[in-house]
Design a protein around this nucleic acid. Sequence first.
RNA 1: CGGGGUGUAGCGUAGCCCGGUAGCGCGCCAGCAUGGGGUGCUGGAGGUCGUCAGUUCGAAUCUGGCCACCCCGACCA
Length: 491
Amino acid sequence: MSEQLSKRSENYSQWYQDLVIKADLAENSAVRGCMVIKPYGYAIWEKMQQQLDKMFKETGHVNAYFPLLIPKSFFSKEASHVEGFAKECAVVTHYRLKNDPNGKGVIVDESARLEEELIIRPTSETIIWNTYKGWIQSYRDLPLLINQWANVMRWEMRTRLFLRTSEFLWQEGHTAHATAEEAIGETKQMLDVYAEFAENFMAMPVIKGIKTANERFAGAEDTMCIEALMQDGKALQAGTSHFLGQNFAKAFDVKFTTKEGKQEYVWATSWGVSTRLMGALIMSHSDDEGLVLPPKLAPIQVVIVPIFKNEEQLALINEKVFAIKKDLEAKGISVKYDNRDTYKPGWKFAEYELKGVPVRIAIGPRDVEQGTVEVARRDTKEKSVYQLTDLALKIENLLSQIQDNIYKKALDFRDANTYSVDTWEEFVNALDTKGGFITAHWDGTPETEQKIKEMTKATIRCIPLNNRKENGKCILTGSPSEQKVVFARAY
RNA sequence: CGGGGUGUAGCGUAGCCCGGUAGCGCGCCAGCAUGGGGUGCUGGAGGUCGUCAGUUCGAAUCUGGCCACCCCGACCA
């Protein structure tokens, strides 16, 4: 194999980068920290988008779009929000360029300085709440359940394709409710939507939980999250759902009249997932041969590769394949027939493995004669010979088996890399030798969490929602604790 | 923003210490053979060596500035 991936064991970061680039998903752009999402990568994102959008609509949400640029003053209205994002904002200061009088291309026209600077959105709470103010007067206007598909920009110091880029694509839901209970219900509902998407579509098991104060979203009362475990033992926050309380309503003065005629601030939520999910998908399932895509998100679910020596053979094979393709497509399976004669079969096999296509069908003269095809699955790399009878049905079942198997594999991996510890020694030992999720008692204070982070680089990923209460002692301070929380080193 | 590293053809790199006509692999183009796991052989095209300056008869190579990217940290979805 000429373009082998660097092995995962050597440097996971490098392996991941190679995989993203070689599988033709994305590349670095000329703009610092930004990425070019290439057609194949974007096709996967589109599959994710479609499914998420469907789930949002099923839960009563609608889409809208708000501006990219946010007046600076909007930002200062919610104190903790501005503090959380101030350090990573791109700022627009001018609105015009001019030719350099010295003939060196174009320069910024200093006379075109904006009176108030504009911030390229790092997230849209402020501009959306400024807008909602005009939309909400009465309890009859509530709830307001809106989602936006957009790009945002955060001037990150260090970037990594898909996992953390300066500009990224995401969806951000922003809802307004009459009561705290309803808003909290929404926060939980959307977390469930994310978890269902991660597990059923991405085949990636996640832990649903609540963030500690240290890890909470800037401006939120509570942040709920789904946390996934990557193959190198590091955790990845895959999605968040925030209960914002009345913080933004108060900051932007969004009040409504209740049935009883009283004026009250509305209750808010926001929730989002991003192209980071692509990173999660890649790092959850891929191997040294390349990407492994779950069938439900694979842009190409089945690739058919003909094996032929001459035009006559190809013509015969074409005829067979067109029928097979039609049957598969009738079942809603996306099929690519790659009958290019400019690449060899072996080359194609390797190429589609790199791209993570779940099922490959190879068909040659021998198969035509015998009424068979060779079917290879990406997840296990098993090859078997199938009779043509009911082929589409068999492939449909196989795809669903692959989906399940990929999930099970990831779940087994997570289970095998989740440790419960009771002492500091065990904790440090587990972190250094094994990685993974580590559950341990914690005294509940931000100071202890911070100290653990400084000492070990491990953070509390979340307090699981389904946690069972058990009394114990904090691994660091020995103070009493009523439950274990999930620690890990994270991306 | 701190520490380290790297910039040579589309990609990956050798050459740099010790200055003297820029090399290799992949990819690309052409031809022939091949075709059930990244084919083989033959021929060919493609480079102001990141950039600016300095030293020198002569700089990819030595010196200095600048720029970009990568890795490790801090920060973060």
